[in-house]
Design a protein around this nucleic acid. Sequence first.
DNA 1: CGATTAACTAGACCAACGATCCGGTTCCAG
DNA 2: CTGGAACCGGATCGTTGGTCTAGTTAATCG
Lengths: 211, 211
Amino acid sequence: MWLRPPREPRQTLSLGRIVAEAVALLDEEGVARLTMRRLAERLGTGSTTLYWHVKTKDDVLDLALDAVFGEVPLPDAGGDWRERVREVIGGWRAALLRHPWSATILDRPLMGPHALDHTEALYAALAAAGLEGPRLKAAAYSLANFVMGSVIMQVTAEGHGDAAAFLRERAARYPLLARHGLDCDWDAAFADGLGFLLTGMRDGGGTGAPT
Amino acid sequence: MWLRPPREPRQTLSLGRIVAEAVALLDEEGVARLTMRRLAERLGTGSTTLYWHVKTKDDVLDLALDAVFGEVPLPDAGGDWRERVREVIGGWRAALLRHPWSATILDRPLMGPHALDHTEALYAALAAAGLEGPRLKAAAYSLANFVMGSVIMQVTAEGHGDAAAFLRERAARYPLLARHGLDCDWDAAFADGLGFLLTGMRDGGGTGAPT
DNA sequence: CGATTAACTAGACCAACGATCCGGTTCCAG
DNA sequence: CTGGAACCGGATCGTTGGTCTAGTTAATCG
């Protein structure tokens, strides 16, 4: 009785605290080391407790991924539509690259509120440019897929750094790959690719091309 | 002695058999159900035996993924460069979609012999169009990333089929998304996006634009 | 005020996993 | 004949995601 600690303040473990700590843990140690036990330990509680707030571990990952999307600011309307698209897509890329683990868990539906908000913003920016119908859909589709693929490939390449040497050794068999696959300026390549898409959807065939 | 089975023929477990069986198992049951034990069982052996041929489970996945790339035929030279690029990229997409599990393990270096062969072929097709230097690199970069992102997004969407209904319920908050996110003609959207990229790298600024 | 209920916490436990240890067997080169 | 490399598997280790059961706190309602 008298040895009892002087009334611990209630932890008030909340979904928000769990997600924030999960993101921190993922940032520091990567996706492979995120376990319910370790996460609970960092939160000063037991692993079982987490399952009151969350149904499975996948829920934690879903929430963490959406939290990453929540970091990127929504673009303000107005201005050149191309600039707005660059803003949205570039914001996604920056946020995902800031948390490299997120690129490795992109194989799940992006249905969190933040992800949906930003996807809607992308559609809005494209619709403001005059796109509509299947052409609008194709534009959003290709932009979103391009940025996802870019982030995954960059994170993968940077995470396994010996790829350059590996390619150099096989320059005889893969000459073009060895010449251009190294010395990566990721940002420039990304900007160029985005430029291809934007001018392509301006000049491409079909109806409803933006100005 | 007398109870001994009449001389089982040597299993001759080889890397090829392991990879083939792994692909079959992945096709039938998905990536989550690929375990070394189950794979060994299907091969009529013990799980330990696999570790003689393979260092870790990741090796199996690496090999299986490269086997998928091995399915797509290399394009023959000649003809319109745009058609050849469509052939390469479309081949990747078809093979990856034929094995949906492959899209979820794309977050690893694509350094298998088949993957490298096809990447080199992509560079060759673009170089034949007159591209070179950073512009060639940006073209290959954007095409590869576009197709990877497309496959991942499509597989993800098709694997969790209730997304459409989910969006319909939230049509008030995400009007554009609800209107265009459903009724997906994936092939058409992909072809359109690929068209954007191809015309973009023809008409885009800079030097060395192909004809 | 007392009782019920929802929110919250934890220890013990389960089946399954990747991986390893150790011991055994087959086969071929020297 | 022999030694070593290739090949095989039972038992086992430590860890994981998840559940069962049981306990405690805080707010609500009659």
